[in-house]
Design a protein around this nucleic acid. Structure first.
Length: 810
DNA sequence: CAGTGAGCGAGCTTCCGCTTGACTT
């Protein structure tokens, strides 16, 4: 480490984020050194819960490996400082960070000061420096209670699942409720029966100054049956249509609040198609570049200076009448508001450089911030009722005119509703008793919508609404439940659905059956069978912990602790005693849960057909394990579920693998494997195309097509092979060309042309690669190694991750 | 990334919240 020549530091300020440190240092000037702790520096030990259950839940804290370096540096800096300013966030976690720092760095209370600010502005920070306080130990205790509770719940419940359902599963206060939401919604969808009705709509024309204007209107009644719709259309064939009334109603629209983490994730998903993880990493880049304020926040508040800058931008670009200063209040439960809303750091800058995604996200944040301080839009809504001769039902047309655009000029908030109904549009001028020409009349069968499946972003919104999880955990939670196999995120093709269409043509009613695609899904979260089995188990045995208001209840407890009204160990004890009893009782009394269903007997062999969760996921079984003959197994498809699959569907699974014939004298077989449906030929596998191919019906010519396509891709993948050694190849991958040697991959330097590499050059790169890998593997591995470190006897992997003191970053 | 499901049973898995890396196949 290069020791910087610094005048004796009088003041050391410690914040959580390095980007924040950089900014603050500029405000504070020479006498202040500002450093960051990179979040929490200690956590509960992994061993024995990290909690001493025999001694009043005494937490066992350890400095995590990746924090040792930071802690050492802070320790030595704090020794030399006259005053240490602990400037972590003003919330439960921030207070705890300050306390952990003071403990770990062994800070003396007389030279330690705790300061807080909610916005990173010069004024706010100077004010904070003038009003220091002590560490709030009640708040710290509330955090300890939170931490200990989460550990106890997670580390007691998960092992129950390992024993009763499947190894490596997990449960926790947050993730289990997230999974529950998905499972319950999925069941609503299972149970949903679509109803249909016939919606009648018409296109009329009206004359204005010799010009004919057309507009659309809907009947105010839906018919249950095609016959009723038919009769209605018929009766319209020679009817008159007359404007019965024209009503105009003014209304206004109000802008949405500035972004929080959750609303940013939602809007970036809707408008830009980002996943919540992508939104966070792009935002992180913008934050580090100093372009936006902190991106993990639950506050909708803007700093005064920011509001001023926004207002003057609006004034100079659009004029005074577009300005309306607003203060927003957070609606979400449990918000701690340690930061500002997410906004441009300098609201006068309307665009930034960087990658395309960074530009787009900045633009979104910029516009949302501007809009939040702009005037209401003024709208005029027009409703026109149109009578039909001799009919009790009438048509309704509605239109909307924007009288003053206000904030709509820069930003329109999106919704999750699919555009079933087109938005109200402009209507031509009309008056009462005007006669209208019927241009078109139709009735279409419409089906009621099934409940919406959650997307990543809408799940985040729901969790926030329930007060479960924090801005910093929304994205990680979503990825955890996917990693554990509780949830898959994917598209579903949907299925064709017939509907009736009727229309009036030259005075007669015609009818036709048409087809639409129904229930297609894009980028939605689907709970797996494991999720359903685990959820049912938890709901059955631990209803209190996975209830939707568990978090809200314990938050109340934490609040009491923070106020000093309750001792944290007492609160934990009140929970843990009965909870632990529940765990023991469950271990003793509950059965193993595999989601097994016995569906019937195979008509051919008489053997039982059942489904359950196997070692590798949901599967069907033909025959029983006590039989002489081994049972046959077949995995379920992605669309099938243990609880909804029928006997016939399960039976069909055993038609695979299926022989399709031969190609180039070798067998072609189709089946379903770990990664979905495939065709196998000559020892090679080619995946079937999702939504296009069906393993049950695919024929030989199509299979050959897939095999050839796979060959083509493999050929393109290979840039170069060598006679000297078959194991050495230059391949084309997702990140460009690379060298593959004995199942390991190596980088090719940018200045080298991949296609012209010689055998010797490649070997040299492999050697160099192995060298750098060794240093890396000591640091970055940790988890990856635990799953499959048994094979690969090739290079020295003996070294335990012990050499870290030498691996200092240059 | 490989197309399984049995069986000894050792040893491992796991939580939530606060932060940023390292760098892929």
């Amino acid at each position: 480490m290069a020791k910087k020549e610094k005048a004796t530091e009088e003041n050391l300020v410690i914040v959580e984020s390095p980007a924040k440190a950089k900014t603050i240092e500029k405000f504070l000037g020479k006498n202040y050194l500002v450093k960051s702790s990179f979040g929490h520096i200690r956590d509960l030990a992994k061993k024995d819960f990290g909690i001493d259950l025999a001694h009043n839940y005494q937490p066992q804290y350890v400095v995590s490996d990746d924090k040792k370096e930071v802690v050492n540096e802070l320790k030595s800096l704090s020794k030399n400082a006259q005053t240490v300013w602990l400037a972590s966030d003003e919330d439960r976690e921030g207070e705890a960070i300050a306390w952990h720092l003071s403990e770990t760095l062994e800070l003396h209370s007389d030279k330690t000061k705790r300061i807080v600010f909610h916005e990173i502005t010069k004024d706010a920070i100077l004010r904070a420096i003038e009003t220091p306080r002590d560490i709030d130990s009640n708040l710290v205790n509330a955090q300890q209670a939170r931490r200990v509770l989460d550990r106890l719940v997670g580390f007691e419940l998960s092992p129950v699942l390992w024993k009763k359902v499947k190894p490596s599963l997990s449960a926790g206060r947050v993730q289990s409720v997230a999974v529950r939401l998905l499972v319950e919604r999925e069941r609503e969808i299972f149970d949903f029966k679509a109803e249909s009705a016939f919606r009648v709509s018409a296109i009329f024309s009206v004359e204005e100054k010799g010009k004919k204007n057309e507009f659309k209107a809907d009947l105010n009644h839906r018919f249950k049956t095609a016959e009723e719709a038919h009769a209605f259309l018929e009766s319209c064939s020679d009817a008159n249509f007359k404007v019965a009334s024209v009503t105009k109603k003014p209304s206004t629209k109000t802008p949405a609040a500035p972004f929080t983490t959750s609303t940013l994730q939602q809007e970036a998903a809707r408008k830009l198609g980002f996943s919540v993880g992508q939104t966070m990493s792009v935002a992180q880049k913008l934050y580090e570049a100093g372009k936006i304020t902190y991106m993990r926040t639950d506050s909708v508040n803007l700093a005064k200076s920011a509001v001023n800058a926004v207002v003057s931008s609006i004034k100079s670009e659009m004029g005074d009448k577009y300005v309306k200063v607003r203060q927003y209040k957070t609606k979400s439960k449990g918000a701690q508001e340690a930061h500002e809303a997410i906004r441009p750091t300098y609201p006068e800058i309307d665009s930034v450089g960087g990658t395309a995604t960074e530009k787009k996200l900045y633009d979104l944040i910029y516009k949302r911030t501007m809009a939040s301080q702009m005037s209401d839009a003024v709208i005029e809504k027009t409703t026109i009722n149109i009578d039909v001769d001799g009919q009790k039902h009438h048509f309704v047309a509605s239109g909307e005119v924007v009288k003053f655009d206000g904030f709509l000029r820069v930003y329109i908030e999106s919704t999750d509703q699919e555009e079933d109904e087109e938005s109200a549009s402009f209507l031509p001028p009309m008056q009462q008793n005007d006669l209208l020409d019927l241009k078109k009349l139709e009735a279409r069968q419409r089906f009621s919508q099934k409940p919406y499946r959650y997307s990543e972003a809408s799940l985040v919104r729901k969790l926030e609404e329930l007060g479960i999880g924090r801005p910093s955990t929304y994205a990680p939670t979503i990825s955890t439940i996917q990693q554990r196999g509780y949830v898959v995120k994917e598209d579903r093709q949907g299925s064709p659905r017939p509907y009736q269409y009727l229309w009036l043509e030259n005075g007669t009613v015609k009818q036709e059956e048409k087809t639409e695609m129904a229930n297609a899904e894009r980028n939605k979260l689907f709970p797996t069978d494991i999720a359903m089995v685990v959820n049912d188990f938890l709901v059955n045995y631990f209803p209190n912990v996975v209830s939707y208001d568990f978090t809200a209840k314990v938050e109340q407890e934490f609040d009491e602790i923070a106020l000093g009204k309750v001792e944290w160990q007492k609160a934990i004890d009140d929970f843990y005693k009965p909870f632990h009893h529940q765990v023991e009782e469950t271990l003793e009394k509950s059965e193993r849960k595999t989601g097994e269903r016995i569906l019937g007997n195979d008509p051919k062999t008489g053997k039982p057909v059942s489904v359950r969760i196997g070692r590798f996921g949901p599967m069907a079984q033909l025959g029983s394990s006590e039989d002489e003959e081994k049972p046959r197994y077949a995995p379920l498809t992605r669309e099938q579920h243990l609880e909804t699959i029928t006997f016939e569907e399960a039976l069909k699974l055993f038609d695979l693998p299926r022989d399709l014939g031969t190609y180039e004298d070798k067998k072609v077989v189709v089946g379903i494997g770990r990664f979905g449906p495939y065709v196998r030929h000559d020892g090679k596998f080619a995946s079937l195309k999702k939504g296009i191919d069906d393993p049950m019906t695919i024929d030989l010519p199509r299979a050959i097509e897939l095999i050839e396509e796979k060959r083509e891709r493999d050929n393109k993948k290979t840039i170069k092979t060598f006679e000297e050694d078959k194991d050495l190849q230059v391949l084309n991958g997702r990140w460009g060309p690379y060298i593959s040697y004995k199942k390991k991959n190596y980088k090719i330097p940018k200045d080298k042309e991949a296609a012209s590499l010689s055998y010797d050059e490649c070997l040299k790169l492999v050697e160099e690669g192995d060298k750098t890998k060794k240093t890396k593997s000591t640091k970055g591995k940790k988890k990856a190694a635990s799953t499959k470190s048994t094979t690969k006897s090739g290079t020295k992997t003996k070294k335990k991750p012990e050499a870290k003191s030498t691996s200092k970053s240059k």
